[in-house]
Amino acid sequence: MMLAGLARRRFVRYEVVVMCSLCGILGSNEHWADAVARPGVFTRNTERVDRRRERANRVRIAGRILTEFGMTLSDWQGSSFLLSTRTGKTEMVEDLGHLWPLAEKISGRVCDPLSHSLIEKLEGGGDA
């Protein structure tokens, strides 16, 4: 009885660490903007439709910002994103925690939200 309880607990505790059968990547740390739905936590991961809408919005708004650095973002199978430069360099991005370091790496540019030129361009309004 106790052993069964222990086994159940271990399963529950480690279920977050799973391996993706497609790419072989170990499930990693939960990013705050993609929190797993649980009581008390704010997330847009609760309903499928919310999740899809959030991903579409993310692609749209991130795309507007990334345009200023010569990059694009697109959805990849509803689970990750593809970040690409105009020259075709492409990286898979798991969440927002990885987006900006990768964007700086593949573009070779500093992606600074406090940059005057970026703010002025975004304040210019509208789509790029």
Binding site: I61, L96, P101, D112
Partner: peptide, 29 residues
């Protein structure tokens, strides 16, 4: 807008996280 906020804060912390000693807030989303 939650999506824009997430993109903004992650971008800010990626570049300036060591200088943002703390950010704390209540948001009307």
């Amino acid at each position: 807008d939650w999506t824009a906020f997430g993109l903004w804060l992650t971008m800010l912390l990626n570049r300036h996280g060591d200088k943002v000693l703390r950010v704390k807030g209540i948001l009307n989303i």
